[in-house]
Structures are given as C-alpha cells and as structure tokens.
C-alpha cells in the first residue's frame, strides 16, 4: 500500500477527525505537525501547493481537507 502522510496542526479540529477516521479504518499513517515544524510547513507548501491543513498525501496523490471518501477511493 502507498505510504499515507497527514499534515496537521495540533489545534485543527478537522485534522483530529481525519486521524480518527484513518485509525478507525485501520489505515496506518505518518503524521507531520506543521505547526510545530516550520521547515516541514515549508516542505508541505512546496509539495502540495497548500497552506492549509489537513492535507493528506497517498504516494504521489494529494488530498486536500477532510475527505474520507477521497482517501477510500485512492486506497481502493
């Protein structure tokens, strides 16, 4: 399965819901808290073109916002 990375901030309610969804579905993921790591925030903007969280990358694919259906679709 492609690697799943979720870019978050600790105060973002939708990030919390997204992580809860992934855990409930048994999807393992790597979390990057861009609020605590300015270098990671810069990388996220360069990689995804987004200055907003949550953003999820699944391999090369990017999903913006809280979009469980989009994640399910990409993971088949």
């Amino acid at each position: 399965m492609a690697e799943v990375t979720v870019y978050t901030t600790s105060t973002c309610p939708w990030c919390t819901r997204l992580k809860d969804f992934l855990r409930a579905e048994g999807i393992s993921f790597h979390e990057v808290d861009v609020g605590k790591d300015p270098a990671a925030a810069k990388r996220m903007v360069e990689l995804t073109g987004q200055r907003s969280v949550p953003v999820t990358t699944i391999g090369e694919q990017i999903i913006i916002g809280y979009d469980p259906d989009g994640i399910k679709e990409l993971l088949g």
Partner: peptide, 12 residues
C-alpha cells in the same frame, strides 16, 4: 483560510 484554529500556525 476560513479556519484560524486550523491554519494560524502556518503563518508564523
């Protein structure tokens, strides 16, 4: 952005 709670940390 419409969510300062979410995105304010990205504007340090």
């Amino acid at each position: 952005s419409y969510c300062s709670t979410c995105d304010a940390p990205l504007f340090r």
